[in-house]
Amino acid sequence: MSRRLLIVLVAIAILAIAGWQLAMRMFMAAPGDLDLSLSKKSENGLYAVSLAPEQAPIREGPLESFILTVKMANGQPVEVSRIEIAGGMPRHGHGLPTEPRVTAALGDGRYRIEGFKFTMAGWWQIRFTIEAPPGRDEADFNIVL
């Protein structure tokens, strides 16, 4: 077999796999390189924010609640004056089916947020806008069901 033919055959094989992957990816609900971490710095770096489901794993259908923890970079808990919650499914072009809100300040920078509902499988995005004395900042979380 000529070396040239071999190269071509290998290229064909690689591209066939790529085509397959591309087609499968088009059906997939979320991009593969999504940041799924539940602890992160807020967008402008003001806060260290982490999100923990009160019941894991997160289910499709029933109401779900989370504990959102907001701290300064040095670990000092933040007393938040307001948390705005928005989100939806970017690939489907719809927002959250419910209006979740903070129902309890648990102390130590921890806030209970109730009323999430994930009605479909796929990629969900939740954005928390945090207002506190140090300033206003946002944190996005990705959840894939």
Binding site: A16, A18, L22, A23
Partner: peptide, 18 residues
């Protein structure tokens, strides 16, 4: 001249997946 031909397996792979 080979280049366009290389699209064939891409499409075939995609179609197979579907």
């Amino acid at each position: 001249r080979w280049l366009p031909l290389l699209l064939v397996p891409v499409v075939a792979g995609g179609l197979l997946a579907v």
